[in-house]
Each structure stands twice: as structure tokens, then as C-alpha cells.
């Protein structure tokens, strides 16, 4: 198992090295660093940025707003999915609205939001709108796919709602939340940063990218893009890690009144 992991890591590192070499070759071929900075120039720029307070303030600005949009979409998507599952009238009302949000170009929302609100709120709203349909669809599927036979058991035995939620509903839906997270976090960052660029949200990563374009600083564009990719991956890992730690999501002791494990390792 460990050997297979090391082999996978080694092949991944080799693939990454190959693409860095391709990038370096392309940068040498172009020969103009304002058009295509080399990996070394990008790494140097990142090292310059990392220790500055301004860098972390910028990261925090975007992270806070995009995370807020993602979390709001998760909660909103869950509530809408539940309403649609519980009532066909609610489903008939919600489905076309979600379909419209899913199909409409993100830039249309960004422009509308710029008309209605200031640019600092753009990333949160845009991330929310992009992630909401993903959450709605996945969590709706999760609700529909719950084990009906267990739900009947809960109904017959009159299991309290809280217990049923923790023991049957949430564990049934969590795999779908994990799938929505995998799709949604990347989407939230892409749409959120695009909104920041278009709205030139002061103090955001998008604003830094826009400034880099104005100054023809491709090293900055690549450096900030790498930061966004790293943040997106880190956020995805964090949310999946949290989901995996929900006590009811995996076999776990049901009470603390006995030191004996209830489930074999």
C-alpha cells in the first residue's frame, strides 16, 4: 500500500517536472518575460510576495468572501433540495429558477450584481450563485437516494427527528455533499476570482491579477494564479476532511457509556 503510494507520488512529481520543463522551454522560445514568464521568475515572484502583509491581506479578502459564498450555497442548496424533496409544488417553483441560474452566463450575474451592489460583495454573491445549483442537484439526489427501508424503520419505531437526522438522513446525504464539494469549491474560486477581476474589487486577488495585466507582468499573473489553485485545493481538502469527521458519517460508537468499541477496526 505504502509502496503504491510512493510510486504514485513519484509519477506525479515526474509529470509535474515534465510540464515545468515544457513551460520553461516555451518561455525560452518566446523570449519576452512580459508575455510568458519562466517558472523561475514566477517562483521568485512568489517568494517576494509571501512574506508581505499585503499578500496575506489580499488572500484573506478573497478567501473570506469566496468561502462565505460557498457556505451560503451549501446551506441554501440543502434547504432548497429539502423543500423540493418534501413538496412537489416547491419543486415545481424551484427547478426552473435553478435551471436558469445554472444556464445563465456567469458574466451576466457579475454585471447585474455590479449594478445592484458594490464590488467588494461580488465574489461572495458570484460564488454563491455558481455553487448553489451544484449543491441543490447533488443534495437533492442524496435525499432521494436515502435508504427508504431504514426510513420506514424509523417511522414505525417513532425515532425522534434529531436522531433520525443524525443516524439516517445525514449519513445518506454526506457522500453527495462530498461530491458537490469536489465540484463546487473549484467553481467557487474560478467564478469568485473572475468576478473580482471584472469588478476590480479593491484588495482582492482579482484586483492583483487585473493590475498585473495592466503592467504586463505575466510573472504576477502566474504567481497569483498558483495562489488561487493552492487555495482552491486547500479549501477542497479542508471541507472533505471536515465531512469525513462528521461522527455519523462513518462507523462509530453510538455512546460513551462503554469503553468497548462498537465497530471492529
Amino acid at each position: 500500500m505504502r509502496r503504491a503510494g510512493v510510486r504514485a507520488l513519484g509519477s506525479g512529481a515526474l509529470a509535474a517536472l515534465f510540464w515545468v520543463a515544457v513551460w520553461q522551454g516555451a518561455a525560452l522560445a518566446v523570449g519576452r518575460d512580459f508575455l510568458l514568464a519562466s517558472p523561475w521568475q514566477v517562483a521568485t515572484r512568489l517568494v517576494e510576495l509571501l512574506p508581505t502583509a499585503d499578500f496575506w491581506a489580499t488572500v484573506w479578502f478573497s478567501l473570506a468572501r469566496i468561502a462565505l459564498g460557498f457556505c451560503a450555497a451549501a446551506v441554501g442548496g440543502a434547504l432548497l433540495a429539502w423543500a423540493a424533496w418534501a413538496s412537489r409544488w416547491a419543486r415545481a417553483l424551484i427547478a426552473p429558477a435553478i435551471a436558469a441560474v445554472r444556464a445563465a452566463p456567469v458574466v451576466s450575474f457579475i454585471i447585474l450584481l455590479l449594478l445592484w451592489t458594490d464590488s467588494s460583495r461580488l465574489p461572495a454573491f458570484t460564488s454563491f450563485l455558481m455553487v448553489l445549483p451544484v449543491m441543490y442537484a447533488n443534495l437533492g439526489q442524496g435525499l432521494a437516494q436515502r435508504d427508504r427501508s431504514l426510513l420506514e424503520v424509523a417511522w414505525v419505531f417513532d425515532v425522534p427527528l434529531g436522531r433520525r437526522l443524525l443516524a439516517m438522513d445525514i449519513p445518506g446525504v454526506l457522500p453527495y455533499l462530498a461530491a458537490a464539494t469536489r465540484a463546487g469549491v473549484g467553481l467557487a474560486w474560478k467564478a469568485g476570482v473572475a468576478a473580482e477581476v471584472i469588478g476590480v474589487a479593491a484588495g482582492s486577488i482579482g484586483e492583483r491579477l487585473y493590475a498585473a495585466k495592466l503592467h504586463l507582468a505575466s510573472a504576477d499573473v502566474f504567481a497569483w494564479t498558483l495562489v488561487v489553485v493552492a487555495l482552491s485545493v486547500a479549501c477542497e481538502r479542508l471541507v472533505l476532511w471536515l465531512i469525513a469527521r462528521v461522527p455519523c458519517a462513518r462507523p462509530a460508537p453510538t455512546s460513551a457509556d462503554s469503553p468497548r468499541p462498537e465497530v471492529a477496526p
Partner: peptide
């Protein structure tokens, strides 16, 4: 209609908290 990953005791107490 049992939860396969839970023990016998946990299955009983799942519906009878």
C-alpha cells in the same frame, strides 16, 4: 433492515435511543 456497519447493540439503540 439493519445498518451493516453498526454493531448489534448499536442497531438496537439506533431506533431505541
Amino acid at each position: 433492515r439493519l445498518c451493516p456497519h453498526l454493531s448489534a447493540v448499536a442497531n438496537v439503540r439506533l431506533v431505541l435511543p
